[in-house]
Computed example of a mutant assay.
Amino acid sequence: MSFSGDMQRFITKTTTAHNTIARVATLELFSGVIRATPVDTGRARGGWQTGVGSAPKGDNKRLDKTAAEPLAEVERNTPPGAGQVTYLANNVPYIMNLEQGTSRQAPEGMVRKNMDRVQKMVDAAIRKNRV
C-alpha cells in the first residue's frame, strides 16, 4: 500500500459518501414537503416545481392530489450528487399561508417540519459515513 493509493481511496470514499448524502437529503426533503402539503383541489400539492441552478418561476397551475407529477419531477431533476444547487419552489399565491399553518391538514406547515426531520437524517448519515 502506498500513500497515494491510500489518499485516492480516501478521496473516492469521501466523494461517494458526500454525493450520496446530498442526493438522498434533497430527495427526502423535497418529497417530504410535497407529501405534507395539504390537499383540497390538488393545486398546492401539484404546484411544487424543481429547478437546478435557479428557482422555477411562475405558477404551473398543475392539479395533482396524489403528488405523482411533482414527485417524479423531483426524482428526474435532482442531480446525482453534490455540487449543484437544487430548488423546490411553489408559486401558488397562498403557499405561505399553508406553510404558516392555516390548514388543519398541516398545522405545522410543510417545509419547517421536513427541514427538521431531514436535518436529523443528514446528521446521522454524516456520523455513519465518517471517514
Rank of each mutant, 00 (worst) to 15 (best):
D6H: 13
D6T: 13
Q8C: 10
Q8E: 14
Q8A: 15
R9H: 14
R9M: 14
F10M: 15
F10Q: 15
I11L: 13
T12K: 13
K13I: 14
K13W: 11
K13T: 15
T14G: 11
A17C: 12
A17V: 15
N19R: 11
N19S: 13
N19C: 11
T20W: 04
I21V: 15
I21H: 07
A22T: 11
A22C: 08
R23N: 07
R23S: 07
R23Y: 04
V24D: 02
T26Y: 06
E28I: 08
E28T: 15
L29W: 00
F30D: 01
S31Q: 03
S31P: 01
G32M: 06
V33W: 01
V33S: 04
I34N: 06
I34M: 02
R35W: 05
P38G: 04
R43A: 07
R45E: 05
Q49P: 08
Q49E: 05
Q49V: 11
G51A: 04
V52T: 00
S54C: 05
S54W: 02
A55F: 07
P56H: 07
P56D: 05
P56L: 06
K57C: 08
N60G: 02
L63Y: 13
L63Q: 12
L63A: 13
K65T: 04
K65P: 01
T66Y: 05
T66P: 08
A67W: 02
A67K: 00
A68S: 14
A68K: 08
L71Q: 00
E73S: 00
V74C: 03
E75C: 04
N77I: 04
T78P: 05
T78S: 05
P80C: 05
P80R: 01
P80M: 04
G81Y: 03
A82H: 07
A82D: 14
V85P: 09
T86C: 11
Y87E: 11
Y87L: 07
A89G: 12
N90K: 07
N91L: 08
V92G: 09
V92L: 13
P93F: 04
Y94K: 11
Y94L: 08
I95K: 12
L98E: 03
L98I: 13
E99Y: 02
A106I: 10
P107A: 08
E108L: 14
E108K: 15
G109Y: 04
V111T: 12
R112Y: 00
N114P: 06
D116R: 15
R117P: 03
V118G: 00
K120V: 11
M121D: 09
M121L: 13
M121F: 03
D123S: 12
A124T: 11
A124P: 08
I126M: 10
I126Y: 08
R127Q: 15
R127H: 08
N129D: 12
V131E: 14
